[in-house]
Simulated assay, not measured.
Amino acid sequence: MNYLNEEMVYGKNPVVELLKSGKPVNKILLVTEGAGSRNQEIISLLHERNIPYQFVDRQTLDRLTNRERHQGMLAYVAAREYASVEDILALAEERQEAPFILMLDEIEDPHNLGALLRTVDAVGAHGVIIPKRRSVALTGTVAKTSAGAVEHVRVARVSNLVQTLNDLKKKGCWVSGAEAGGKDAFKADLTGPRVIVIGSEGKGISRLLRENCDEIVSLPMKGKITSLNASVAGSVMLYEVLRQRIYSN
């Protein structure tokens, strides 16, 4: 049996066929075997489809597969198909609305991503952008936490967040990064074509991405705690954008 559960496929032939099928794949794990190994066919396919991969020792795959016959390779399958940034913008155009997009910088907790997908759906935002590396992908846990929202929200997975951000700015989007030390989010103008950037649970927005935001906005904090969970902060920001869109008309 080459399938451990709905999120993992392992064994050389099943993984190769999975890649050839075009189905969404989050990441591939390969046992290190050196140049000229049987991994080369897989690696060529990974480069062709721009799928992240990582070399691990054989003991790691033995543990993940309960020592079943994995032949040195394992694939994590996405819970659903990824969209493109163009798909997200097309949805805004189809609805005749200014783009409303959430960009997540290295969110690693699947529960945070799942919760944010629920909020994105609730506020009517057009989609979410996540990085291909150092970030949780569309796993089964994300799908479950989203309570079905993963089926309705367009999620684009990109190689370079900064480049994507600058492309969106060229298309008329204004970028607001949510982080401590910025202007009061409730006093900022968040109307019009908008990208909201939320940083990782521990480090916040990365320096280069922060520098490419048009503004930094912050939620007022009146208590002893100085920061909020990423999904909570993101949800409050998204609802403030929705509030301004409704009441500015």
Rank of each mutant, 00 (worst) to 15 (best):
M1C: 14
M1E: 14
Y3W: 13
L4F: 14
M8E: 14
G11Y: 12
G11I: 12
V16L: 14
L19Q: 02
S21R: 15
S21P: 08
S21W: 09
V25E: 00
V25R: 00
N26L: 04
K27L: 06
E33P: 01
G34L: 04
A35L: 11
S37R: 05
S37Y: 03
R38Q: 13
N39T: 12
Q40I: 09
Q40H: 12
Q40G: 05
E41D: 14
I42E: 00
I43S: 14
L45R: 10
L46A: 15
H47M: 05
R49I: 03
I51G: 03
Y53L: 06
F55L: 02
Q59K: 14
T65E: 12
N66W: 05
N66Q: 11
N66M: 07
G72T: 10
G72H: 11
L74I: 10
A75W: 02
Y76I: 14
V77R: 01
A78Y: 01
A79L: 07
A79G: 13
R80Y: 08
Y82L: 08
D87L: 01
I88K: 00
L89A: 06
L89S: 08
E93C: 01
E94M: 11
R95V: 07
R95Q: 14
E97L: 07
A98M: 06
P99W: 02
F100S: 12
F100T: 00
I101A: 03
I101P: 03
D105V: 06
E106T: 13
E106A: 13
E108K: 15
P110V: 02
H111D: 09
N112L: 03
N112I: 04
N112E: 03
L113N: 01
L113W: 00
A115P: 14
L116F: 04
A122M: 08
V123R: 03
G127D: 09
P131W: 00
V136D: 05
L138Y: 01
L138V: 05
L138W: 00
V142Y: 02
A147H: 08
G148W: 04
A149S: 15
H152I: 06
R157D: 06
S159Q: 06
N160F: 06
L161R: 01
Q163V: 08
Q163C: 03
Q163F: 07
T164A: 11
N166V: 07
K169H: 09
K170D: 13
G172W: 03
G172C: 06
C173V: 15
W174Y: 09
V175M: 11
A178P: 02
A178V: 15
G181A: 09
G181D: 12
A185V: 09
K187T: 04
A188N: 04
D189W: 00
L190E: 10
G192R: 02
P193I: 04
V197S: 14
G199R: 06
G202M: 07
G202T: 15
I205C: 10
I205A: 04
R207S: 15
L209P: 01
E211N: 13
C213N: 05
D214R: 04
E215Y: 02
K222T: 10
K222Y: 13
K222M: 11
K224S: 15
I225D: 14
T226A: 13
T226L: 05
T226H: 06
L228K: 05
V236M: 13
M237Y: 05
Y239S: 11
Q244I: 07
Q244T: 10
Q244W: 04
Y247W: 11
S248M: 00
N249A: 14
